[in-house]
Simulated scan of single mutants.
Amino acid sequence: MLQGFAPVVGQHARVLILGSMPGAASLLAAQYYAHPRNQFWPIMGELVGADPALPYAQRLDRLTAAGIALWDVLARCEREGSLDARIRDDTAIANDFAGFFASQPGIRTVLLNGGKAEQSFRRIVLPTLAVQEFACVRLPSTSPAHASLRAEQKRQAWREALRAAGIATAR
């Protein structure tokens, strides 16, 4: 059984970015999006200054300073390897979103990093929430396994979603 990470959240979070479950490289490094070919940090580097060359703690600081919180839909699951497609849905246990949203009333937008994050959030989490006062937006996965879009296309989709949520981005 794999165990995910705690949320990364600052005092003034307006946007929550959700992945499904950290991949093997991330779990090993104990860092969100640690696979060197994942586009998450290059995209966040360009958009909000969370450059992959910065130490991990500074990248997280840049995200939270921009009003972005980071977490995963699943707290625990069984999965062989790192691919979302290998997550065993019958073992998937969601994080405590009712408690999270109660403690973070400023979050108005949930950005879902790929299809599995969206599917799990809509299937496991949304039915358990009494109030859903936020927009849910599925974005192209930043995973290297999602190769149907070029990096620039992914970056543009993320830029548009962050701007629509009121997050100031570069360019």
Rank of each mutant, 00 (worst) to 15 (best):
P36A: 05
P36L: 05
P36G: 04
P36E: 09
R37W: 00
R37T: 04
R37P: 02
N38V: 06
Q39R: 11
Q39L: 14
Q39G: 10
F40M: 14
F40P: 04
W41D: 01
W41G: 00
I43W: 01
G45I: 02
G45Y: 07
G45M: 03
G45A: 02
G45N: 02
E46S: 11
V48F: 11
V48C: 13
A50H: 01
A50R: 03
D51L: 04
D51S: 06
P52K: 15
P52M: 00
A53V: 11
L54P: 01
P55E: 14
Y56F: 14
Y56Q: 11
A57P: 02
A57C: 07
Q58I: 06
Q58K: 08
L60R: 11
R62T: 00
L63D: 00
A65F: 02
A66C: 01
A69R: 10
L70Q: 08
W71D: 15
V73C: 04
L74A: 06
A75E: 12
A75R: 15
A75I: 01
R76N: 06
R76E: 13
C77H: 14
E78Y: 11
R79S: 11
R79G: 01
R79V: 15
R79T: 15
R79A: 12
G81Y: 15
S82D: 12
L83A: 13
D84Y: 08
D84V: 13
D84F: 08
R86K: 09
R88K: 14
R88C: 00
D89W: 10
D90T: 14
D90P: 11
T91V: 03
T91H: 13
A92C: 07
I93E: 09
I93Q: 15
A94D: 10
F97Y: 14
F97M: 09
F97S: 01
G99W: 13
A102S: 01
A102Y: 01
S103G: 14
S103C: 05
P105Q: 07
P105L: 00
I107S: 02
I107W: 10
R108I: 01
R108F: 08
T109K: 02
V110W: 08
L111F: 06
L111H: 09
L111D: 10
N113R: 09
G114K: 11
G114Q: 13
G114H: 10
G114F: 09
G115S: 12
A117P: 04
A117F: 10
E118T: 13
F121Q: 02
R122Q: 14
I124K: 05
P127F: 04
